[in-house]
Amino acid sequence: MLRLNNTFDKKYFKIELIFFVLYFYVFRFLTDFEYNFWERKKSGISFFEVEYNLLYGTSALIAYWIFYQIIRRYLISKRLFILIAHILLFLVFYSIYLKATSYLFAHLDFLSEEMRKSALRQFNFKSIGYSLAYVLREFFSISFLAYFIHVDKQNEQVKLLKEQQLISELTYLKAQLQPHFFFNTLNNIYGLALKRDENTAPLVAKLAEMMRYILYKADEKLVSLKDEITFIQNYVEVENIRYRSAINIKFDAQGIDDNSKISPLLLLPFIENAFKHGIEEEEKEGFVNIIICKTEEELTLEVNNSIAKNKEKTGGIGLVNVKKRLEILYPEKHKLEIQNDEKIYQVSLTLEMK
């Protein structure tokens, strides 16, 4: 949280600095320029006006920067009575401050004579030293800046907290998915090992390759779509080794390029679900058809699988988790359709690619 606050402070200090420079320097020069152009019928501003605006703009900037710190501290915290007391004190000291700066400017020998005379007149002028109308203008402008930054900072903090919450939830969902995936795959290896099947070693090799992908890629926010498809292809090959010719398995990937990115392990649960909950109990008539198609703007996944007889339920923790991940990662940017007619289970997923 300290790091976030430091980031916010740096960002908003730049905004504050730009505001004060514009307000107390640029606008003063523009006002004089406009007055000279329209009223005096001359372009540009004199050396005296430049000198005057720089000196009194700097003195006003320093005073109102202090006032701005008061606004930030008490207005935002809704301590109004303390704020009003500080404003009254500021008005008193601001009058003294303006007289003191005018006296100082009147006695600085390196300033122009016209500037020193003007400062002396302001020092000797029998008044509080400022216009209440102008002071109120400054008050409202600076108060608006303080309130704007306060609201924007709160919105940024809420946004970051939401992002952190989403990251934590995604991490949790991935943590659930990975043990679930390995549990299913190890079951496959265990079944082949009991049969002393010659395909056990190739299956272990494929699993090792998939484990390497999960260990090094699963924690990344986005991975190469090409790598993700290769991982899925390895998974399908593992299932091919397991079922061999008993089940009709088809896998086709089209339009996969090297530049597209996708959240890791996002497509796997749909494919894993087709094998785990669709044809696991089939012996000779089951099928799984997988088509992944990438266009310029969309990625489409189509999975069709037969449903084993007497299979009462399809879907599992992986499918539940991936639906949650889709809601988090692709809000209003995905379309998921699932159909089940008790004989064929169909999944159609369309993603707007990031």
Rank of each mutant, 00 (worst) to 15 (best):
M353C: 10
K206D: 15
L132G: 02
V238T: 08
M353V: 07
R325N: 06
R137F: 14
I82K: 14
L194H: 14
R72A: 01
F33E: 10
T230F: 13
P179H: 00
L17S: 13
T200K: 07
D9P: 00
I279A: 04
T58G: 15
Q178P: 00
F140D: 07
Y23P: 05
S77W: 03
S224V: 02
L319R: 09
L170T: 02
L108M: 08
L83M: 11
K354T: 15
L265S: 04
I70S: 07
S245V: 07
Y12Q: 09
D9A: 06
Y56V: 01
R3E: 15
M353Q: 12
E209V: 13
F125V: 12
L145E: 06
L301I: 04
I229T: 08
A146Q: 02
G57K: 01
E49Y: 11
L30N: 09
L120C: 05
F24H: 01
E114N: 15
L299S: 00
G318Q: 11
K11H: 14
I70A: 04
E39A: 12
K11T: 11
D197R: 01
Y64C: 08
L104T: 12
D109C: 08
K206R: 14
L299W: 05
F24N: 05
M115L: 07
E302K: 12
K159C: 08
F105W: 06
S224D: 11
F182S: 05
Y94E: 00
A63P: 08
K323R: 11
L104F: 14
A175W: 12
E285L: 08
E169Y: 11
Y330M: 07
L120P: 11
I247S: 02
I87Y: 10
D258G: 05
T58I: 01
E332S: 08
E16Q: 13
V92A: 11
V223N: 01
S118W: 05
F8I: 14
E16T: 00
E352C: 04
V288K: 04
P179L: 05
W65Y: 15
M210D: 03
S77R: 13
L104K: 03
L61I: 06
N53C: 09
R28G: 04
G286R: 05
H277V: 04
A63H: 14
F231I: 03
L265P: 03
K41V: 04
A60T: 13
S141Q: 02
G318M: 12
R242D: 02
I317D: 14
D258E: 06
H150V: 04
H277D: 11
K311M: 04
K99T: 02
